[in-house]
Design a protein around this nucleic acid. Structure first.
Length: 217
DNA sequence: GCGACAG
DNA sequence: ATCTTGTCGC
């Protein structure tokens, strides 16, 4: 594993990222991963919900061997293989994928959400729980308020308050969607919790999976 | 050189 | 991400 080569891959793929688009959305997918205690296995869950009613229409669970360590800025090389494996079994035609992690709010503008979008050629949004790069002001404590995340003079995402009284989330364009539309869709996916339904439900499901509640995995 | 650093 | 109990606040 050579960091220089991985950077080259990211710098090549980032050229294909499209930062605009207002795709018609009927089905939204949410992905999340969990790892076994010994770190050898990765569990993945993809939850597909119908938009805008947010009703779950499909859940796919997959397990894979971990082949790469976690290195800030290179999360996709660790988590994308398991995700792609699970994605092959999804039957619903997904119009938008929400990923746990950043999109272009990344040092080289190719966080895992953007990486997935480019590789699969689908619209994606990055929904992270903490900052990776950039500066921002804390948004007002009202649901829906947000402030921009800047890296130098570039706007790379927003810090979005999805629920009053809780920490905001960090949203960024993944691929083939504008920031405004990403914010709009994400807010419509919030049901009363900090995390929007797609990734929130995926997280709950993958956590059940990891605990061996399904020892069959 | 020092600190930051998605999940 | 995972490990882990209680505790503070709406």
């Amino acid at each position: 594993m050579d960091i220089v080569k991985l950077k080259n891959i990211q710098e090549k793929l980032v050229q294909r990222v499209i930062r605009e688009g207002r795709p018609y959305i009927e089905y939204i997918g949410g992905v999340d991963l969990a790892f076994s205690g010994d770190r050898r296995f990765a569990f993945v869950t993809i939850v597909v919900i119908k938009f805008p009613d947010l009703e779950v229409v499909e859940v796919v669970k997959e397990k894979d061997n971990v082949k790469f360590p976690y290195i800030p800025g290179f999360l996709a090389f660790r988590e994308l293989p398991p995700i792609l494996k699970a994605l092959r079994r999804v039957r619903t035609k997904i119009d938008l994928m929400m990923v746990d992690g950043h999109g272009i709010a990344h040092p080289r503008r190719l966080g895992i959400a953007s990486h997935l979008g480019v590789v699969k050629n689908i619209p994606t949004i990055g929904v992270a729980k903490s900052i990776l790069v950039g500066k921002f002001e804390t948004p007002d404590d009202r649901k829906g308020s947000y402030s921009y995340i800047y890296d130098r003079d570039e706007i790379i995402g927003v810090v979005l308050r999805t629920k009053k009284g809780t920490k905001p989330i960090f949203l960024s364009i993944g691929h083939m969607i504008s920031l405004d539309y990403a914010i709009e869709i994400t807010l419509k996916c919030v049901k009363g919790y900090r995390i929007p339904e797609p990734t929130r439900l995926a997280h709950i499901e993958v956590e059940n999976m990891r605990r061996g509640q399904n020892a069959l995995w």
